[in-house]
Design a protein around this nucleic acid. Sequence first.
DNA 1: AACAGCATGTAACTTGTTACATGATTTA
DNA 2: TAAATCATGTAACAAGTTACATGCTGTT
Lengths: 201, 201
Amino acid sequence: VKEERPLPATAYAVLGLLSFGRELSGYDLKKWADHSLRYFYWSPAISNIYGELKRLEGLGYVVAREVAQDDLRNKRLFRITDAGSEALALWVHEAPVDPPVLKDHALLRVWLGHVSGPARLLELVAAEEAASQQMIDELRHNIDVSSQDVAMAYPALVENWCVGYQRARIEAFAELRNALEQQALEQQALEQQALEELPPS
Amino acid sequence: VKEERPLPATAYAVLGLLSFGRELSGYDLKKWADHSLRYFYWSPAISNIYGELKRLEGLGYVVAREVAQDDLRNKRLFRITDAGSEALALWVHEAPVDPPVLKDHALLRVWLGHVSGPARLLELVAAEEAASQQMIDELRHNIDVSSQDVAMAYPALVENWCVGYQRARIEAFAELRNALEQQALEQQALEQQALEELPPS
DNA sequence: AACAGCATGTAACTTGTTACATGATTTA
DNA sequence: TAAATCATGTAACAAGTTACATGCTGTT
């Protein structure tokens, strides 16, 4: 049980999912991450979660209870230990907080607008606006669920944050769309002009 | 020159930096990524950039020109080729756009608020607001530079998007801060109550 | 009959990071 | 004189993904 270098944040994310006191399987954790962590952090691949659970078990931060299934394999339900809770609390209090990362693949294409021109970008931007709107709908549903449960007060606050964030994202894209439409019109005007200067054959 | 599976987005990000037509060294690319891509995408490690340049060179998407230095080593300035421009355009037009990822380490801690309580979270939130404000200042400076150059019209649009995004982030955090302050007061009230029920020794 | 959900885990692989080696010039 | 900036690249490592193996149950 040597604690050389700090665990990756993913380990604490998994431990954090278990810190709400429920006994959960790896599969459960992945599902939960998909509708919670995903919106503001990241949802690790299922194989990654199994890997982290193994590591956390080795450190004594979680324990598994074997549950028989009709399958050959058993189901394993994980629970956080006192040592795990302590390690998590220490991490939240002491570990340096990495700067937030936004990795927006659509914006990367907008940044490279000179390669494709405004038409393609308008497609992309519209798709992103729709995607954000869908996220808001999902989040609102999650908030309905979270506000039923007092233990989910902090997750509910974060879900609210996420709605505000997605709303702002849509607004920022709408503004960008205006600028692009402007540019598309100017480009059309230039093409029109070129056509007039070169009379029809 | 086999093109089995798609290149990682990082390769196109590097190629994209070169698509503005300038001849740049690996070092230059890193610096530029640090004050452009970083705000909406990601700035790869310098060693990663050298690696991608090597790959792009192997594919014929970029060529290097050796420039003598007073050092033992030469400086290598990279330029995009026609094949590279074509590959980049194809990527922007055809490649599926991955969903945006927000990885916010501060919010992960807020989500785990039950582990630390509102006091620690208020610290974190204040720090994030300050960090966002600083980003806005940096972005405004970048916009001043970008708007000097017609070739930077699209990057300027994205920088504007980023300002809007950071402003919204601050607002969302301010709202969260209010909710947390509310919660901190309630917690203090509970402690006060506990003190009164247990008279001083 | 095919697919999706439940369920676990390993292995091969890719991606990207940090650390290292090397050394000149400029700034504090 | 210590540090930051300029400058390139490799090697060791960590982190995380996809693909695979296995098999039950319920839905389309």
